[in-house]
Design a binder for these strands. Structure first.
Length: 432
RNA sequence: GAGGCCGUAGCUCAAUGGUAGAGCACCGGGCUGUGGCCCCGGGUGUUGCGGGUUCGAAUCCCGUCGGCCUCCCCA
């Protein structure tokens, strides 16, 4: 094993990737019913985009991005998230003049240079959902509801509330958050000597993040800090109360966590995280919030916005756990063709093409092997049916169709290869 | 970025500083027209990589790459 994959970048073998496909397809079908449109944005963006959107003093930008100079000496960055790129696209294409709301989603890899562990890769996949154009708590309720709809869709999870828990908070608007920040900094400065080293730095550059610190001594201080929700202005308060009211009336359980903050600077008012069981330390499976001013900060018009991202690998772990064989069946061939004479291989080739046109997953082996060896091969590939064509059959214009599970076989007479294929298709389509 | 555990055959794992092994898998045969079962035979290896100590290293030391866990951070 000479060359290993890059740290934190993983291979997806069929039995893994089929789960990814299943989840993505489910999410897509739900998003389409909410009238979200799928888009694709670049994986590489100018570094400045992320500095200006996520925030210069966030951990993501300061120490987690893959940033380098390209051959023209321009600084570029592998996207650590998708929101910034979508905002850039909206501004660059002038989409903010379009009828509102704008509803987009995208899926694909994100890149963060962190120490890998379970549920944390350096290349990881997100389903990113963004809505632009309205400032209404109903949209937040609907967006978070949508996140749950997606998360619980696999196998129609009925007990999803045992797996996923929702935490919400309001960070206030620009006005009241500034007010709060002042009070928070004042309080933290009085207790500066009790804070850890990084928190003392955060105090200067990004004081809200102190609330997210998990070091015990800091926790003691945090427990006594002023709470943002007590500083919300009238409008923000009404907004947040309305959201909770909607949750209560549609039966969405939530935990209000006044210490919940986010690692990206652009969030405002409502933010949320959905945590999942079985994930260990990296338990946030989906998170998002409102970011009304981001578009304006990036040079566009003022356009209220809300969005969230689902971490696909984490979602997969929360759904499948360590079970490995759930989807293997999808990978089995429907039918395996065994041709016993070299001269008949061309017939096998043609039958395979016909069967594939009928949508059957068809495998054929062109090597000269005994019937026994070929059957063993078909068995190992877990083929559901086997078609046997030998000299004897060809002369009598028939073929043998064997049901591998039942262990029985029957003769199928035919006039030409196309009618043979059609007969086979009709015989087995209901058994697959 | 910090700390800890780990890395041996395709997989799961043994081997107390002294000949690199087992089970499963795989390949061949018994068996040239019928899979799964059975029997016989085959070890398929740069012990992650690179140095060092030693008569001798999978084993001890250093470095490095990768995985897992915690911190951190987040999806």
């Amino acid at each position: 094993m000479n060359i290993q994959s890059v740290r934190g970048f993983k291979d997806w073998l069929p039995e893994d990737f089929i789960k990814y496909q299943y989840l993505i397809n489910l999410a897509r079908s739900i998003l389409l019913t909410y009238n979200y449109k799928e888009i694709k944005i670049p994986i590489l963006e100018k570094t400045e985009l992320f500095v200006r959107s996520i925030g210069e003093f966030t951990d993501i930008v300061q120490k987690e991005t893959y940033t380098f100079q390209d051959r023209n000496k321009e600084f570029v960055t592998l996207r650590p998230e998708a929101t910034a790129g979508i905002c850039r696209m909206i501004i660059e294409k002038g989409l903010f003049v379009n009828p509102k709301p704008l509803k987009f989603f995208t899926t694909g890899p994100m890149f963060r240079h962190e120490r890998p562990q379970k549920g944390r890769l350096r290349e990881f996949y997100q389903i990113d959902v963004e809505l632009f154009g309205e400032l209404n708590p109903y949209l937040e309720a609907e967006t978070i509801y949508l996140a749950f709809e997606i998360l619980k869709a696999p196998f129609n999870l009925k007990n999803y509330s045992e797996i996923y828990t929702l935490e919400i908070n309001s960070l206030g608007c620009l006005k009241c958050r500034a007010e709060y920040k002042k009070e928070l900094v004042k309080f933290l400065k009085e207790n500066k000597d009790k804070l850890c080293h990084t928190c003392q730095e955060r105090l200067e550059k990004n004081p809200l993040r102190v609330l997210d610190c998990k070091i015990k001594t800091c926790n003691d201080v945090i427990a006594k800090t002023p709470i943002i929700t007590e500083y919300l202005c009238k409008e923000c308060k009404i907004h947040f109360e309305k959201l909770k009211e909607i949750f209560n009336s549609i039966g969405i359980k939530y935990v209000e966590n006044p210490r919940l903050v986010r690692g990206l600077d652009y969030y405002i008012r409502t933010i949320f995280e959905i945590k999942a069981k079985g994930l260990g330390a990296q338990d946030t499976v989906a998170a998002g919030g409102r970011y009304d001013y981001l578009l304006k900060e990036l040079g566009g018009d003022y356009l209220p916005a809300i969005g969230f991202a689902i971490g696909v690998e984490r979602w997969a772990i929360s759904i499948f756990g360590d079970k490995k064989e759930k989807f293997l069946q999808e990978l089995f061939p429907d039918i395996f063709l065994i041709v016993l004479e070299d001269e008949l291989l061309i017939k096998g080739f043609q039958i395979a093409q016909f069967l594939r046109k009928y949508g059957l997953k068809c495998e054929i082996n062109y090597e000269k092997k005994s019937l026994k060896a070929q059957l063993r091969n078909a068995d190992k590939l877990l083929a559901k049916f086997v078609l046997i064509l030998g000299e004897k059959e060809w002369k009598e214009k028939k073929a043998l169709l064997k049901d591998m599970k039942k262990g029985v076989q029957e003769e199928i007479k035919f006039e030409n290869l196309e009618t043979l294929s059609y007969k086979i298709y009709n015989k087995i389509k209901n058994e697959l």
